[in-house]
Design a protein around this nucleic acid. Sequence first.
RNA 1: CGGGGCGUAGCGUAGUGGCUAGCGCGCCUGCUUUGGGAGCAGGAGACCGGGAGUUCGAAUCUCCCCGCCCCGACCA
Length: 587
Amino acid sequence: MLRMSTLFLRTLREDPADAEVPSHRLLVRAGYVRRIAPGVFSWLPLGYLVYRNIENIIRAEMDRAGFQEVHFPSLLPREPYELTGRWTEYGDNLFRLQDRRKGDYLLGPTHEEMFTLLVKGEYSSYKDLPLVLYQIQTKFRDEARPRAGILRGREFVMKDSYSFDIDDAGLEKSYQRHRDAYIDTFTRLGMEFVIVSAMSGAMGGSASEEFLAPTEVGEDTFVRCSACDYAANVEAVVTPAPASLDYSSVSPAHAEQTPDTPTIASLVDLANERADLVRADRAWTAADTLKNVVFMVSSPDGTEAPLAIGLPGDREVDMTRLEAVLQPRQSRPFEDSDFTKYPTLMKGYIGPGALGSANSSGINYLVDPRIVTGTRWITGADISGSHVFDLVAGRDFTPDGFIEVAEVLPGDSCAKCGSGLQLARGIEIGHIFQLGRKYAQALGLKVLDENGQLVTVTMGSYGIGVSRAVAAVAEQSHDDRGLIWPREVAPADIHLIATGKEDAPFDAAESLSGQLEAAGLRVLYDDRRGVSPGVKFNDSELIGVPTIVVVGKRLVDGFIEVKDRRTGERTDIAITDAVPALLAVCG
RNA sequence: CGGGGCGUAGCGUAGUGGCUAGCGCGCCUGCUUUGGGAGCAGGAGACCGGGAGUUCGAAUCUCCCCGCCCCGACCA
């Protein structure tokens, strides 16, 4: 039993000045966590209870799915990460250290290498597969900017699993097993979540989905279809390509003098003002223009090459999507010095005429999927102060290919059913990947198949942010008075409060708390004498145990009060019926 | 790494060159109070982020450094 009189807890009456998001604010105010360093937190007794509840639920669900728990150290040698290139690729995000003999070590940011090598050391036959191993373990990533309390820390706990299969069909099955287990896990944690298609990012591999907890403070933006079940991280949104258009009646392309129109807005204004350019049926809009943006793309080996991207003028290039597509290559917008090196690119007036491998510049030219054959555009004429009108894709220019990097806007068409998409934010609470053979190949994880041939194992990797889940649940489940824990993750089932200055309510509550514990309920008993009822009520609401029981002024009539933290609903029950009644409430 | 904000007691804060750095919460002692963050009285707690400088005098002005928060970049 937890007693408030001795519990290591100090609730704060005011919000901490450095906490912005609700979960951070409330977890600090309610005395669950304290900050130690940027992105590094300690768990206090109440917080650690909740943390362990969540960890145990995740563990129980993994075990139920038939996965086997192992445990690696956080302190790892350099070599395995050197073999896969991640010692370098991870860059500054890796916490590195040296031992006394100057040997390089790292604090594990994720453990694909270690699991791959572990299995390589033990198994060598297809008969041993499939296999799924997991661990619940502290990870370290030197994030450039930790934020939002324990939502994005530099030290955090992750449940990471890895599946090992002989072929793609097996991987697909292991992936589905995880998907199902994750659905069960997050449901049991009382979380609202959405499964979205995702980019596999630096992890490599093919298929991947994220489990997002929708909330405004989430760091990921995702789309959801208003009509069907399509959902995707914006990075992974697929833009449906419209059908090609018949352009036989479109007049030939013609260059026009358009002085002082370096921006889309100024170009559209000019086109609508000039009698010779104005459209008969409707006004020109930014969507009629073809904007060409140039980036300098650098590969991990250090080489640089320009990339031109064409997209409708009413959209920007979404840098997040661009990074995701180019991974592991990096990009930056063209600077003046770059333009100097490519004199055929006329800043502000770049058109397809100067782009593409077939043209003089030889610059790779990729366009948005909306730019299909037959679409007509106003675009740069590659001469300062001049634009081309009626330039038709497929007739007047042919891009080198397509690229999905335009910003996604609310109302964009769903790739699955064509209805409008909605945008929302979410916290990434889980991510499942079909990794494929990247790590097995790099580290030589092979087994003999039934024909005695060596085959490379195919892998999946699957993560749940355990510590992050604590914050995500808090984020989804609180009100202006404090936290509201789902019962299974709450630090207790019942927050029992005794009020008054007489001994009677304290004696009754003391006895009741013992009976409740004997009946299997977890009790947080506020036995503090001399603390006013208001303080106790406020603390109970801040702490967020789902059921609050008050033994107070109605005790003289033999009644105690039962309050539902979430709904605020109060009922009086006879103290003689308390144990069975509360067992029923706590289900 | 770029932009913005900020560092004063455990927490929240006031204090733009001049007395012993002020207030609220929390903490300690005593009395009173006990159904929505009680009252009175007395107390403890601060190297004003650090260093250098300007000045008769610096929390306050200048320079350098360190740290924190937010936005962006980045982020299995």
